[in-house]
Design a binder for these strands. Structure first.
Lengths: 260, 260
DNA sequence: CCATCTTTGTGCACGCGTTCACAAAGACAT
DNA sequence: ATGTCTTTGTGAACGCGTGCACAAAGATGG
């Protein structure tokens, strides 16, 4: 999905496949939930179900990290939480800046999933002088004139772009020049960056269009097999054994959320 | 990416690969921009650059739709816009409901990229009685008690879930039971749905974690080749010929934006 | 009408990711 | 200590997606 998933062609980072890296956060979330329930160990089968993936895939994913399981028993939840967190680099603090404090930027600033994963919103930046000083999510918005200074003072290496599409590339260039090497882009634009800078994009419009494609296809099939109207077709069975249709991942991919 | 890319295993819908479908919206956006500038034709090379992909890949993608190009000339922009729009099902009206009108839900309601792509926000739904009647983006919020009626009255087949994680599965079940067959999920949870229902997920937290992984790797490499501190490492060269690092596709994978 | 030049459309090979299926490893009971 | 049972870790096969490289198609000029 998500997003966008910007695939990187052949960058097997230290032997860990990109597809596996994209699933590690999924496992981590499931493991954290188990940890909170004080579950000591979990089998690959159980954990796979909780994460919505195939158990064989999960075992292979973990095999890239090392042998952290015990045959006949399963995986130690706490230990695995630690190992995955470490592998993802979540044991350290990641200061993040959000540029573009509109509806979406404000929503991101209020997002509670940051702090719990080691991400800290170091600053909110907007080009509108009227926004300057106004607190959003308890953090005062700063003017984009100070972007470079903010990045450097806080040692920020991850930037989030939530500006309108027209401003995104310029903001991106400034972020990169100031030292940012990872960018999460919510603006519906293709960003051009130097080598060594990672970009992931999230584009809501794209996600909806992909859904529309499949929706259209479903409506078309149904039209010549079933006679009922489109809104009356409710499929309701087998909600138990069927694997969740989650994923989108690898590339994944990948949606945008900004005013066009 | 982005996430959210939920891959579907082997569902080559009418011969068009899933990876191609995920890129069609990208091409469409680039083509729309060209159309607004009244550019009559475009070569695969130019369009590929604008969309941030390989030209061979673009040509192969288009070949699945049919032969819409003219050798020696390129593609007719207007015609291609129409063909891709039709293929994605964007020539028809798609009523959409957004459930969960918090920060994110409001941001989505205000998102301008909906209407321009054939998506119409038919209703905003929230479980908080205090929200009922309050207009967001010019649309009055309705209480979730009326969810089923809203879905049916408006013939909605696409639902967007922007609720907290704890409420997502229950909302999903109700949407599906009421007739929704495509769901875009922003809650950080694995949704279980019956066969025939498509789910795509967008998870901001996951996207950031993937960035952190690569960021950590970059910092590690740099540490034993270059001696400078992490915040001082600015890569600044070759910003011209290098291909944009956009993608994440399929999968991409796929990020979430909700309070944990 | 012919030659040349541009650009598409695609056959082919390669590599990554997924899945199956099973041997190895350890827990547990007797 | 031995046997049985559970679950991991992985070798191997398969399929999808990507990119190369080129032949075919058409435009354009003489």
């Amino acid at each position: 999905m998500a997003t966008g998933r910007t695939h990187r062609p052949a960058t097997r980072s230290r032997g860990i496949p990109e597809a596996t890296v994209a699933r590690l956060p999924l496992y981590l979330r499931a493991l954290t939930a188990l940890s909170e329930r004080s579950v000591p160990t979990v089998s690959s089968e159980e954990l796979a179900a909780a994460a919505g993936v195939n158990s064989a895939k999960l075992r292979k994913d973990f095999s890239y990290l090392g042998s952290y399981g015990t045959r006949g028993v399963g995986y130690d939840v706490e230990y695995l939480v630690y190992q995955i967190s470490r592998e993802l680099g979540l044991t350290q603090d990641w200061p993040v800046v959000i540029v573009g404090i509109g509806n979406l930027g404000a929503a991101l600033a209020n997002y509670g999933g940051f702090a719990s994963r080691g991400f800290r919103v170091a600053a909110l930046i907007d080009a509108d002088p009227a926004m300057a000083g106004k607190p959003v999510a308890g953090i005062p918005v700063q003017h984009s004139d100070d972007l470079e200074k903010i990045i450097q003072d806080n040692g920020v290496s991850i930037g989030v772009i939530a500006t309108p599409a027209g401003a995104a590339q310029a903001v991106c260039d400034r972020l990169v020049a100031a030292g940012v090497t990872s960018i999460l882009n919510f603006a519906p634009t293709v960003l051009t960056v130097p080598d060594g800078v990672d970009v992931r994009k999230v584009d809501l419009s794209i996600e909806l269009q992909i859904l529309a494609f499949h929706e259209q296809r479903k409506a078309g099939e149904e039209a010549h097999t079933d006679g009922t109207g489109p809104a009356a077709a409710v499929t309701r069975e087998g909600a138990d054994d069927s694997a969740p249709s989650a994923d989108k991942g690898p590339d994944g991919d990948v949606p945008a959320v900004m005013p066009a």
